[in-house]
């Protein structure tokens, strides 16, 4: 359900908007292609985060967390299992979206070239980092924090320069975007489109930032896990 419904809606809405725009100006197909491409790419980040967080929520809702944490599974192994599940879900939902874009708008994201793959992988990892932070907060603050699961990725959207270049942003925001991996990915994507070469610098920035994000996210989760054990509320999580 979550795998197909939302991507489809997103794509339909944006597809229609772009189709509508294209009736105005004939010279826009490149721009439309870009919008759909950006949309698919943003969706990868979003689904990566959602897939991870929802897996955790399912363990919480089914009151299974205690079973897991009294088994020999370590916290790190548990996080890794969430990452794996998020990848599997992502393959389905993104595959679906790419296929739909191709069917509905004859849009083939791979026309952007193989360079898109390493860029997309960075979005997946950033989605993981956000997802791990989200689960850490939910673990600690319970049900009330669940809204975060749905909204936190959008907090990053304006700073990710998904649909517009970083140049048009105010200087202060530009400085912020330097430290957001996804901003480098989307800048890189525009670079690929306009020059046809691989954006080495943006890519390195994104990778380094992502490693830092991921490490901080896991530390944040472990810190919350410890706090929850101290408060003795692991059994109550989800109630």
């Amino acid at each position: 359900m979550e795998i197909f419904y939302w991507p489809l809606l997103d794509l339909l809405m944006w597809g229609f908007i772009s189709t509508y725009l294209s009736t105005f100006q004939g010279a826009l197909p490149k721009f439309i292609g870009f919008i759909i491409g950006a949309l698919i790419m943003w969706d990868i980040l979003f689904r990566s985060q959602q897939g991870l967080t929802i897996s955790f929520l399912e363990d919480m809702w089914s009151r299974n967390l205690l079973n897991l944490f009294v088994s020999p599974l370590s916290v790190l192994e548990y996080i890794c299992s969430l990452l794996v599940v998020s990848i599997i879900k992502l393959v389905f939902s993104s595959g679906m979206m790419i296929a739909l874009a191709w069917l509905l708008y004859s849009y083939n994201i791979f026309e952007l070239g193989i360079y898109i793959v390493p860029l997309a992988m960075n979005l997946i990892v950033m989605g993981w980092a956000i997802g791990i932070i989200t689960t850490g907060i939910i673990l600690r603050y319970g049900q009330e924090a669940e809204v975060l699961a749905w909204g936190i990725a959008f907090l990053f959207q304006p700073f990710s320069a998904v649909f517009y270049p970083v140049d048009i942003l105010p200087p202060l925001v530009q400085t912020i975007t330097r430290f957001i991996p996804s901003a480098h990915v989307f800048e890189g994507m525009r670079y690929v489109i306009s020059t046809g070469t691989f954006p080495v610098e943006h890519f390195i920035w994104a990778v380094v930032l992502n490693i830092i994000y991921l490490i901080l996210a896991i530390m944040f989760f472990c810190w919350n896990f410890k706090a929850v054990k101290k408060k003795g509320i692991l059994a109550n999580v989800g109630e």
Binding site: F69, V70, K226, K229, K230, G232, L234
Partner: peptide
């Protein structure tokens, strides 16, 4: 829960 390491 303390024996199980669920509560510190």
């Amino acid at each position: 829960h303390m024996l199980l390491g669920l509560t510190t």
